[in-house]
């Protein structure tokens, strides 16, 4: 399945599974204790301030079933795999009124797919088509872009853009430092390493 997108070569990253958020959407949420799927993932919700996943909104199971009011906070997730999101028990899905449900309600319409990415020097890098997350830690590592034609030299292949740990998101545009450009990749192989190098450079220049 296309959910597994990287097998990096370094031992440090061997266990890291990088997933696109849109590949997580639609996965079944499976209860470990009960051994059955309790919902499907609808939206992936993340915190751009801290660069990590907050949780998921859910659909009822079945082709014609609608969205659920319940949400799944990230700290209730046991594991995110290529084929399912695992939870210990079906009761971990929070109903409306939970902090994540409030977060989702107040953030409605802030879908970053389709947003433009601009550098702090005013250069447009492209349009977001997805976000890349490290499944083991729920960390948001970067964006997949339909890039600017000058950047997109490899026959229209998507670009992968590392993001800082903290990031400004306005609702229509995403701001990244101009220093990110050398770390843009057109393949997910080695993208995890590019993210770490980029963040190391940022932390080095700020200290």
């Amino acid at each position: 399945m296309s959910g597994e997108v990287e097998r990096p070569g370094t031992p440090h990253e061997e266990d890291r599974l990088l997933l696109r958020a849109t590949e997580v959407a639609g996965l079944p949420v499976v209860s470990i204790n009960e051994g059955e799927a309790v919902a499907d993932v609808k939206d992936v919700v993340y915190n751009p301030d801290q660069g990590h996943l907050l949780g998921f909104t859910l659909n009822k199971r079945g082709f014609l079933r609608g969205p659920m009011k319940a949400v799944l906070p990230m700290d209730s997730v046991a594991a995110i795999g290529r084929d399912a999101v695992m939870v210990t028990d079906s009761s971990v899905c929070d109903d409306k009124g939970s902090p994540l449900a409030d977060e989702v309600r107040t953030s409605a319409g802030r879908n970053v797919v389709g947003n433009e990415v601009l550098t702090d020097t005013g250069r447009r890098l492209g349009t977001v088509t997805d976000i890349v997350v490290a499944a083991d830690r729920g960390e948001v590592l970067g964006y997949e872009l339909q890039g600017d034609s000058k950047l997109q030299g490899q026959g229209g292949r998507p670009l992968f853009l590392p993001i800082p740990v903290t990031l400004a998101v306005s609702g229509t545009a995403l701001m990244v430092p101009a220093t990110v450009e050398p770390f843009i990749r057109d393949d997910l192989s080695g993208f995890g390493a590019a993210v770490e190098e980029f963040r190391a450079q940022l932390s080095g220049s700020s200290s």
Partner: peptide, 8 residues
């Protein structure tokens, strides 16, 4: 049912 990527 279609999903998205929501920035809180």
């Amino acid at each position: 049912r279609s999903g998205g990527v929501i920035a809180a």
